[in-house]
Amino acid sequence: MKPSTRGTLAAVITGVAATVGAAATPAAAVGTVPVPVPLDGVEKSLNVDLPKVGGELPLPTPGAPEEPRHVEGRFIPEHVVPQLPLNGGLPGAGLRAPLPHVLGRGFDHVGLDAPAAGLRALAPGIAADAPLTAPNPDRLGLPDPKLPQAGVLGPALRTAPVANLGLAPGR
């Protein structure tokens, strides 16, 4: 291959890699997707002040489960069937509605802002242990029998949603 062909090929590959990297970065950085509700056409056609409504939908991202780990005295490692983490969020909403001076001249609209809240979840998992103990040196390395153990690790949810309700002047 000629040096000029190699240089051209390297420039094309570099340009494609930069374009793909630039396109992937904003999508990966966004945690929510805005969802506007377009009411402008109805507002203009009916000549009425309508509420401004919008929302946010979170993008769930799966996490990496904990790897099985050996615990002294147990025959089977802990977390053989691990709990799978999932990070996402609760949907958000925004509402701003006109208010016809019910509370006086300083209050022209009522607003509700409930941003998307983070949500961490863990799927159910299984904890189990075999009906044998670890090798016993007193019995020439043979394990002792014991009752088997099994349990279900319950799912877990963790979030802290917030909302703001207010009255204010202006449109």
Rank of each mutant, 00 (worst) to 15 (best):
Ala93Tyr: 11
Leu122Arg: 15
Val48Lys: 13
Val33Lys: 10
Ala130Val: 12
Ser45Glu: 14
Val110Met: 03
Leu147Asn: 12
Pro26Ala: 03
Leu99Gly: 02
His101Trp: 11
Gly92Trp: 03
Ala114Thr: 04
Val102Glu: 03
Leu112Asn: 03
Pro145Asp: 04
Arg158Thr: 07
Leu86Glu: 06
Arg69Trp: 09
Gln149Leu: 14
Lys44Trp: 09
Val35Gln: 02
Leu157Val: 00
Gly73Val: 11
Ala28Cys: 04
Lys52Pro: 02
Gly41Thr: 15
Gly106Pro: 05
Pro148Asp: 04
Pro62Met: 13
Leu95Glu: 02
Val81Cys: 02
Thr133Lys: 04
Leu140Trp: 14
Val102Gln: 05
Ala116Tyr: 00
Ala24Ile: 06
Asp129Ser: 12
Leu86Met: 11
Leu103Trp: 11
Ala116Val: 00
Gly111Val: 11
Leu119Gly: 01
Gln149Ala: 15
Leu95Lys: 01
Ile76Gln: 00
Asp40Ser: 15
Ala121Tyr: 10
Gly106Tyr: 13
Ala130Pro: 11
Val33Gly: 08
Pro155Gly: 12
Ala93Met: 12
Gly31Met: 02
Lys44Ser: 14
Pro100Thr: 06
Ile126Gly: 05
Thr32Ser: 08
Leu132Met: 14
Pro98Leu: 00
Leu50Glu: 06
Val53Arg: 04
Arg105Asn: 09
Gly154Asp: 08
Pro145Met: 05
Ile76Thr: 12
Glu78Leu: 10
Thr133His: 01
Gly94Ile: 07
His70Pro: 00
Asn136Ser: 14
Arg158Leu: 02
Gly88Glu: 05
Leu103Gln: 06
Gly21Asp: 05
Glu56Asn: 10
Gly154Trp: 10
Leu142Val: 07
Leu57Trp: 10
Leu57Pro: 04
Ala24Asn: 06
Leu132Phe: 12
Pro145Phe: 04
Leu90Tyr: 02
Leu140Met: 14
Val71Asp: 12
Gly63Phe: 09
Pro100Phe: 05
Val152Gly: 03
Lys146Glu: 06
Asp138Trp: 13
Asn136Met: 10
Gly21Arg: 03
Asp138His: 14
Ala97Tyr: 00
Val30Ala: 15
Gly21Ser: 10
Gly63Pro: 08
Ala123Leu: 11
Ala29Leu: 15
Val152Tyr: 03
Gly54Ile: 02
Phe107Gly: 01
Gly31Thr: 11
Pro155Ser: 12
Val71Tyr: 10
Val20Arg: 00
Ala150Tyr: 10
Leu57Arg: 12
Thr32His: 06
Arg96Pro: 04
Ala117Ser: 04
Gly118Ser: 10
Pro65Tyr: 01
Gly55Leu: 01
Lys146Ser: 07
Val53Glu: 08
Phe75Trp: 14
Ala127Glu: 15
Ala123His: 06
Ala134Leu: 13
Val81Ser: 05
His101Ala: 13
Gly63His: 09
Ala23Asp: 00
Leu147Phe: 11
Ala150Thr: 08
Leu57Ser: 10
Pro38His: 10
Asp113Asn: 09
Thr133Tyr: 01
Pro91Ser: 03
Leu132His: 09
Pro131Ala: 08
Val37Arg: 07
Ala160Cys: 06
Val48Ser: 10
Gly54Gln: 12
Pro85Glu: 04
